[in-house]
Design a protein around this nucleic acid. Structure first.
Lengths: 191, 191, 191, 191
DNA sequence: AATGAATGAGCTTTCATTCAT
DNA sequence: AATGAATGAAAGCTCATTCAT
């Protein structure tokens, strides 16, 4: 989900990208600002210029960043697909690959950033919006691949929860194969 | 999942129970020991007699505690059920009720306690064991209700990941109805 | 200085002996009561029966214990000696052996117990008394071996400070040879 | 050894100086960070900018600081001296004065800081290096004052251990006169 | 815009001691 | 005499944030 960030990016982007990477592994509360700053090789005081409200602003930027990446992955999986099953299977295999690549402690970025943070309105609303975005994107692809609209929405929601839950199980078992086995649960249309 | 704890319980149990409740809501890193202690109405120093290694020992006890509760809920849902669909639907409705009862920020207790904590072997292994216990328990009920063994295992795993993912979505949407809609994804046997 | 303590000794003695051993290595402030208790394989609450004022009483007992051992070593070195030089050389070699045996972090037990503890009157007075005992004991041996009284006292004091200082240097260099080289400084009578 | 520190010094220096003063009196384990901070009139969190590893880094800075002072005292005693005996006697008298000035609980700063601290490599190696520096400095002065090289080294080592041991005895007896009597032990060359 | 110092509340943990049995 | 629980102050350290330059 997080390709190597080349150095021409702005300081602000580098910060958001580094934060996303760390939050995803350890959760919002598990990462300190100094850890983020030192990973991004930035001095102590430089955060509040880019993110006025500090850690929470940074988390929102990081989640937004991560969400864009996930949307890209969804597109990459579905655009070349011939059928919905094709696309969704590819999506899980891509996530499994990512899981191996990023370290087996990483979970869903948005859960790690927003749902493990302070329980305030802004975080919750953004997580809801992002999750809805992902589901809607999958549903759109499903419709393009020929599924009727109400079924498309259901199957997209189903995919989302299985991806989320599968990711947790993959983390607990430290095995990306868990994710590769998920598609078999998604082959039938919801009743 | 967490009924009111009457006061005849031991200090140790009260501590584990309080910790479970708080970890579930805010995650391992999001809860301070002083918060746990003050909620349990215990003084600062009294933790380390019961949990020698401190917070991490307490988290393990809390997760074990929470796991037992979840197994009880699974049993309560499936024992009186006539069919697997019956039992599984009841389970999700029970979880939805719990979700409303405990506050809409609560997620899966074991994820919140173990997967959001320090990424060490003991936590990970326990989370794997507990998840496997839940899946196995559901599979056992499924077999008792007439499902063939390989299908039972698959459907139990499917149920587990949908419950986990559904819980996250319910948190993001602050709505227990998300959980009540999950059973429709579980009616068909995996391909 | 601290031979293996056989198990028929009283609980109180075992406690004092264990404390002496630990204080000598880490200093009064560097050792916790729980460490002493666990080393002596005694339960948490059992200290205050034997040492009413707690840690400080225990330290006094430990220092007294250690002092007795040191007096024994002085006697062992000087009793069979033909000359003062003989006895004093043997004493340093015995201390060097002890240093190797007990671990190269150990220093003078009385300094470690009393001079690194709280700066109260009882500790200071006892350390003065113990140091005087040691010096007097050496002076007595010196007289027995034919030295005139005022010289005996001076040479004993000289020996004491060189032993103390030599022990520090041996600790810093982690080498018992430092102690074995001390006798050459003590061959001439003070001017 | 520790003249009044004027306020134009940096926060870091003030911290090291205050720490040296307190460690010297109570030992590494006997002084809390909050005591150091409050003595230096600095707030709780300001230590870790200057001393990244906290107390241990601070102790190393304090010992280095104290060592420099001791080297200065050695120079002050020997530079104007006509003979080695002159210089060494002056040195002990200077130390006695210091002892009275700083409070009779103070011992050798380096012993108090490094040898009573955690028994790790860095502390031990630094204490060895510092002690060697002091001995070498005295030996250099001895050679300048006409002593042949091997004797100079021996007499410097002798001086060192007598100073160390004498300091302990002075502490136990609460009397600086103990130090003033030490030179008589150092008048003869080692055999 | 950028920086390093400052800040004090908070963290987990250990301390010596007391209590009830 | 012996024990394990209780106790709260204090330990060393990290936190997110603010300030002055």
């Amino acid at each position: 989900m997080m390709p190597a960030m080349t150095k021409q990016h702005s300081t602000k982007d580098r910060l958001a990208w580094t934060a996303a990477r760390l939050f995803q592994e350890k959760g919002y509360e598990g990462v300190g600002l100094s850890e983020i700053l030192s990973n991004a090789k930035l001095p102590k005081g430089s955060l509040y210029h880019h993110f006025q409200k500090g850690k929470s602003d940074l988390a929102i930027a990081a989640a937004t960043f991560a969400s864009r990446e996930m949307l890209r992955i969804i597109d990459d999986a579905f655009v070349p697909a011939k059928t919905y099953e094709d696309g969704m299977t590819t999506l899980f295999f891509k996530c499994a690959k990512l899981f191996d690549l990023m370290g087996k402690w990483n979970g869903c970025p948005v859960s790690g950033i927003l749902l493990s943070g302070p329980r305030n309105g802004a975080f919750r609303e953004l997580s809801e919006a992002i999750f809805n975005d992902w589901i809607t994107r999958v549903a759109t692809h499903a419709e393009k691949l020929g599924l009727p609209e109400p079924e498309a929405q259901d199957r997209a929601t189903h995919l989302f929860v299985v991806l989320q839950g599968g990711w947790d199980l993959a983390r607990a078992r430290q095995s990306s194969d868990v994710l590769r086995e998920m598609p078999k649960f998604l082959r039938a249309a919801p009743a």
